[in-house]
Design a protein around this nucleic acid. Structure first.
Lengths: 107, 107
DNA sequence: CCTATGATCAACTGAATGGTTGACTATCTG
DNA sequence: CAGATAGTCAACCATTCAGTTGATCATAGG
């Protein structure tokens, strides 16, 4: 699943997650996305390209401006992969809770 | 959130996701984890270290053997982050479905 | 004690990442 | 047409990554 490779890799950078967070509110221009960060526009442009290569966003050019829109499918795929483990972690947390309760009874 | 950085980075590799998938069935020795792969034990050991540094697994030494166990918290954190976008992608898919229905009516 | 086993360490490779700067392209606007 | 604006491109740098090999360490078992 090289899709998942690129999706998770794209999400492993805080700058890129912040871009995603921003885009959930709707379309934005590249320079708007770049504004909050201290790095160069070029650097943000590269992050946008990583997200775009991973299919997480779609970039369309209108005039001299690039507009970015969040895309649903890769995020859903990543969430679906993680969801296979949901029962595992719920069980683990439940077991921990039971253990802590038993501890308390012993006082 | 450097935790998320490391969690997503750890999950961005197919070998490591396969290791996680294996461990959901329960504890395993390092060499058992390595067996299905064609790479060297050292390489798998490095993958295990990445997972362990990210907190996704816990490694305990018993005798000369290392046993690995899956840990719940980081996976849940990653799933929680993605979950913030669930409504977004559900809306996007719903919009797409509506669009396709309208298309059909026009025939 | 000897040897096989489980695993790490150190050193090296080649490729990818995240960032920079400077030059350039394309487009909008006065 | 002349600037200003939006963004890319190319080259470079330092760091990290995924993998290898060979040596080494630690422990289990005959």
């Amino acid at each position: 699943m090289p899709d998942l490779d690129r999706t998770f890799a794209a999400l492993s950078d805080g700058t890129r997650r912040a871009i995603v967070a921003r885009l959930v509110a709707g379309e934005a221009r590249l320079s708007d996305l770049a504004a909050p960060f201290e790095m160069s526009l070029t650097a943000v442009s590269k992050h946008v390209r990583v997200l775009s290569d991973a299919g997480l966003i779609e970039v369309t050019k209108r005039g001299r401006t690039r507009y970015c829109r969040l895309q649903a499918t890769p995020m859903k795929q990543a969430a679906d992969w993680l969801d296979d483990y949901r029962r595992f972690w719920e069980d683990q947390f439940a077991a921990l809770a039971r253990y802590l309760e038993d501890e308390e009874e012993e006082d």
